[in-house]
Every structure is written in structure tokens, then in C-alpha cells.
């Protein structure tokens, strides 16, 4: 009961942002013709006319690619951030990741397309490579703000390195992990669309690209709405999990 209440509260919090966007969108649709910005209601009414029969396949393909690419980025990014924080290589990691961030996604997408061809690998790798630097930087910066006074106290108890990790690093890592899960997935959703634009024949990005070429703005806005709702559900879910199971790691001293 309590968990479901937390989930609903998280969902409502996330929904505020979506409702604001919907309001701006609805407002903008009053000033532009439907072939440029269709209203949200017009889209809901016309779903049956443009929704492809294999929509579920496209949707699940995109979700799979986001999950796969994000998990690679999350694993490598978080781990490299933790290692850099432990070895005090914060600046080196930051420099490396900033250099990686400069590479344009479109160029990288074309390179991956030439290397791996059309399919899932290109969008997955694109998500992994473009999301990883943000997660690594977020991890190392988050851990650098951990409470060093507590570590000093642990030192006076002659704590082992492992005990210091358990009592200082891991508690500081929990909010960083949540931030990575939130930030990373939102970013991964954007990048996967780019990847599917460039090197795929299925997925929501492919459908978006097709609709864009056909100037079918109802379909374009519908897919954007689907992506937004999926992200909202995900954010509410992860927020609930952290509120229920990891709340104590957010307490202040």
C-alpha cells in the first residue's frame, strides 16, 4: 500500500512535466496549422489511421535497444567513475570523457553503420558511447563530494580499504546511481532515436524518420508522446524503488 502510494506520487510528480509540455504543445497548435503542429486531441482521435500494425514490435525493439545500450554505458561509466574516484584520477577521467563527448553523434552513427551495418548494433553502440561519458563524469563528480570527514573517522578506527568502501563509498554511490539511472535513460532515449534514424529499419526512431519524410506530423508527435510517456513511467518506477529501498542513503547528517 505504501509502495503503491509512493509510486503514484512519483508518477504525479513526473506527470506535471508532461502536462506542462502538453499544455505548451496544445497552445502552440492554436497558432499553427495541423500539418505543422497538430493538437494533442487531433492525434488521439487519429491514432487508428496512422498506427502501424507492427507498432508493438517497433516499440519493444526501441525499448530493448535503449536498455542494452544504457546498461553498457551504465556499467562501464559507473565502474570507471568509481575506479577513478578510488584511485584519485578524477581529472584524468574528466578530460578523457569530455574528449569523448565532443565526437558528434551523427558522425559516430555513420561510422558504426559502416562497421556493423543496419540493425540493432548501431543504435545500441551509439547509446552506449554517447551516454557513457555523462555517466562516468557524474559518478566521479558525485563521489568526489562524499563526506571525507567520515572517512577520516574511519581511518582513526584503522578501517580496511574494503570497510571504507562499505561505509563511505557505497552510501555516497547510491544517489549517484539513481542520478545515473535517471539522467542516463533520458539521454539514451534521445540517442536511440538518432541511432535508428541512421542505421535501422525498425524501432520508433525508424518510424519517426519515416513519418518525418512523409511530413506526417500527427504520427511524429504521436511517437514523441509515446517516448515521453515511457520515460515518465520509467522515472516514476525508479524513483519509487529508491524511495522505498534506499531512502536512508539520502538522509543528511
Amino acid at each position: 500500500m505504501k509502495t503503491s502510494r509512493i509510486f503514484i506520487t512519483s508518477l504525479l510528480n513526473e506527470a506535471v512535466g508532461v502536462l506542462l509540455i502538453l499544455a505548451v504543445w496544445a497552445g502552440a497548435s492554436l497558432f499553427y496549422p495541423p500539418y505543422i503542429i497538430p493538437s494533442p486531441m487531433a492525434i488521439l482521435r487519429g491514432i487508428s489511421t496512422f498506427l502501424p500494425v507492427d507498432f508493438a514490435h517497433h516499440l519493444l525493439t526501441t525499448v530493448f535497444r535503449v536498455a542494452a545500450g544504457f546498461l553498457i554505458a551504465f556499467g562501464i561509466g559507473t565502474l570507471s567513475g568509481v575506479i577513478a574516484a578510488i584511485l584519485k584520477l578524477n581529472n584524468s577521467l574528466n578530460s578523457l570523457m569530455v574528449a569523448l563527448q565532443v565526437v558528434p553523434g551523427t558522425i559516430l552513427g555513420v561510422i558504426f553503420l559502416l562497421m556493423f551495418g543496419i540493425g540493432s548494433i548501431t543504435p545500441i553502440l551509439l547509446v552506449a558511447v554517447l551516454t557513457l561519458p555523462t555517466l562516468a563524469i557524474n559518478t566521479v563528480n558525485g563521489l568526489s563530494k562524499r563526506n571525507l570527514k567520515q572517512e577520516e573517522y574511519l581511518k582513526t578506527l584503522n578501517c580496511s580499504r574494503w570497510q571504507t568502501i562499505c561505509y563511505s563509498f557505497i552510501p555516497s554511490l547510491v544517489p549517484v546511481i539513481q542520478s545515473n539511472l535517471s539522467l542516463g535513460v533520458s539521454m539514451a532515449v534521445k540517442v536511440v532515436i538518432l541511432g535508428e534514424f541512421i542505421g535501422s529499419q525498425d524501432g520508433l526512431g525508424y518510424l519517426l524518420n519515416h513519418a518525418r519524410i512523409m511530413f506526417d506530423m500527427k504520427e511524429v508527435f504521436f511517437y514523441l508522446l509515446v517516448l515521453m510517456i515511457l520515460t515518465l513511467l520509467y522515472q516514476a518506477l525508479q524513483s519509487t524503488i529508491f524511495s522505498v529501498f534506499f531512502r536512508k542513503f539520502y538522509y543528511q547528517e
Binding site: Q150, E152, Y153, T156, P171, E253
Partner: peptide, 13 residues
């Protein structure tokens, strides 16, 4: 020696 710092340095979690 055991040290007691000026701040409590408790673990918030």
C-alpha cells in the same frame, strides 16, 4: 589514542 572530533561525524544512513 581514540579521537573525538569537534563534529559528531555520525553516519547518516
Amino acid at each position: 589514542p581514540v579521537i573525538l572530533f569537534q563534529e559528531p561525524r555520525l553516519f547518516p544512513h
